[in-house]
Design a binder for these strands. Structure first.
Lengths: 241, 241
DNA sequence: CGGTTCCTTGAGAGAACTCAACGTCGGTGG
DNA sequence: CCACCGACGTTGAGTTCTCTCAAGGAACCG
């Protein structure tokens, strides 16, 4: 990064070229709200890993972000200095939906890989939502799904169950053909998200590999026996197929 | 209950008498959406504990419910027969917000104590939300707060931290004056919600009592040293004051 | 190429769980 | 009226799943 160390992320603004955007489930793809949604958007931004936070805990809730490419993670740092990963956001996901009902951002957001996002300023967004209830409704539906996901992961499951469910859910969200998942995040981040130590994540993956359910080399995971993983992940109840 | 054993809850329908409803943060209290919200509501229903489910996992998403009095819990039962409590709903809370983005109800809902609720049918609700974006926006804000809560509880915290945070959060939601909290739910339900064994919840409460932070007799908890509990609960980051 | 971060594996420790027993409470029926 | 029953709450003892600590190897970056 040839830029100076800014308190917040270095951003590269570009026009919102939906024509070349690969995101399928974007609001801009829905004919009934496309115009309204586009009217809200500011120019896209790019954020690089290690380039500072997109926003930090307590920051004013100025915008929500729609991921075009890359991966964002959100996390909090508690009084004891422990980091708690709250979520990973992939193309099509909306970042900061958990902030709309709060005064300040409930978490810090950073890029896990080089990431592009569309920016929806909250003031303009709220205006459009008031005028176009369908936009608000689609955001409500998305928040509802995020809530259902959080509540599912919240359950009391074993390390194997959580890791298996996480892998399959991620594979689905990344739309991995050929069964190869390229993990954007580290074992440490996965562990924090799933309330597991880094070592436990490693050991579970090793165990799955020894059983012939997957092949793992660093961030590349090949799912070999999907049915076996689904059987383990079933209790968690995440959409995985 | 002298009634027959129905597959679903026995319900007692009454008119929506907002004039005598004690719920402060109800949508009906907000002048800008009161009329629209009221136009959606069906007659209130009452549900008793042990009288069957309000709805069950997989049921069609026909309605969301606004709690007037009492306490609802939602939970899933996984393939291994384990019960996972997903949430408790107190007066002012909306039940089934996590269902709006799904095909079927993601959980089962039962009454923990005798409960009264307003019923908002989803079809009518969606129509009103399209016409009145402010209604949708307020529901989005509520879903956002629910999401932030779920993500906070999701973190990797000790049993002491979770129980302390839960108690203070509950005390706040119940608006307990004089520092006495009347728990609607059992230790078992609390444990399931917090991913703890029943015995662990007991032991934590006993420990807090031995430290002089609270007095506990069955479902009655008196908070004596709120500051000490808040110090323990701080990492979780729930709104507790 | 050094330095850092990440990944992996092993060994020991610990927080929470399971199993078990017992007391209490509220409802039920003899 | 009181014995009985089931659900709930509490406490103890032993177990276990996951964590912590430690170390080595691999990958990445400047």
């Amino acid at each position: 990064m040839p830029f100076d160390a800014a308190p917040h992320a270095q951003t590269l603004r570009t026009r919102n070229d939906c024509l070349v955007c690969p995101v399928q489930n974007c609001l801009a793809r829905d004919a009934s709200v496309s115009a309204a949604w586009n009217s809200v958007l500011q120019p896209c931004i790019s954020v690089m890993p290690g380039a500072g936070a997109l926003f930090e805990t307590g920051d004013p809730v100025d915008a929500v972000y729609s991921v075009r490419a890359g991966c964002i993670k959100t996390f909090t740092v508690d009084a004891d200095g422990r980091e708690h990963v709250r979520g990973f956001f992939l193309p099509g996901d909306l970042v900061a939906l958990d902030a709309l009902g709060s005064r300040g951002m409930p978490a810090t957001a950073v890029a896990v890989t080089p990431t592009q996002m569309c920016v929806a300023p909250v003031v303009a967004l709220r205006k459009v939502m008031r005028e176009n209830g369908t936009v608000a409704q689609m955001m409500l539906d998305q928040a509802s799904r995020d809530l259902a996901l959080a509540l599912a992961i919240n359950g009391d499951f074993t390390a194997d169950e959580r890791v298996a469910a996480f892998l399959l859910h991620l594979a689905k969200r990344l739309d991995s053909r050929d069964g190869i998942v390229r993990l954007p995040m580290t074992r440490r981040d996965i562990g924090s998200y799933l309330r597991l130590a880094t070592e436990t994540v490693c050991r579970v993956l090793t165990r799955f590999e020894q059983k012939g359910w997957l092949a793992s080399q660093d961030k590349r995971i090949q799912i070999i026996d999907r049915a076996a993983l689904q059987a383990v992940a079933a209790p968690v109840g995440l959409p995985s197929d």
